[in-house]
């Protein structure tokens, strides 16, 4: 697994987590990710990910009119998406714990 693939997997999980609570559209998602500290990625990266997640039925989308111009596409989580988020959280906890153990033991 290359670093970009690993990064994509992590971004997938974060996107699912953000979408979980509220309906959001693309630009909002990118902004939130940046607010959380993801600065190094280009914002457009989220769209291919969203497209795949939609194909895999993890998210659904609806178009809504906005006061400020063209229609926005809002995403929300499906049931399948919620369980995928659970899996991601478990995987992440394990990974995080392992990495932390390695770092604290080996870099004393």
């Amino acid at each position: 697994m290359s670093t970009t693939q690993m990064m994509k997997g992590i971004l997938d999980g974060c996107l699912l987590a953000i979408i979980k609570d509220t309906e959001v559209y693309g630009y909002e998602l990118a902004e939130k990710l940046e607010d959380y500290g993801f600065h190094s990625f280009s914002e457009g990266t989220i769209y291919p990910l969203l497209m795949r997640m939609q194909k895999e039925e993890l998210v659904t989308s609806t178009l809504k009119k906005s006061t400020a111009g063209p229609r926005r596409k809002y995403y929300s989580l499906t049931e399948k998406g919620e369980s995928e988020l659970q899996h991601f959280m478990e995987r992440w906890q394990t990974l995080q714990a392992s990495v932390n153990r390695v770092l604290s033991d080996e870099t004393k």
């Binding site: 630009y27 769209y47 906005s66 063209p70 926005r72």
Partner: peptide
């Protein structure tokens, strides 16, 4: 996808 990116670019 073009429409979605257009919205994004406008706001960005």
């Amino acid at each position: 996808i073009v429409e979605e990116l257009q919205v994004h670019l406008i706001e960005a």
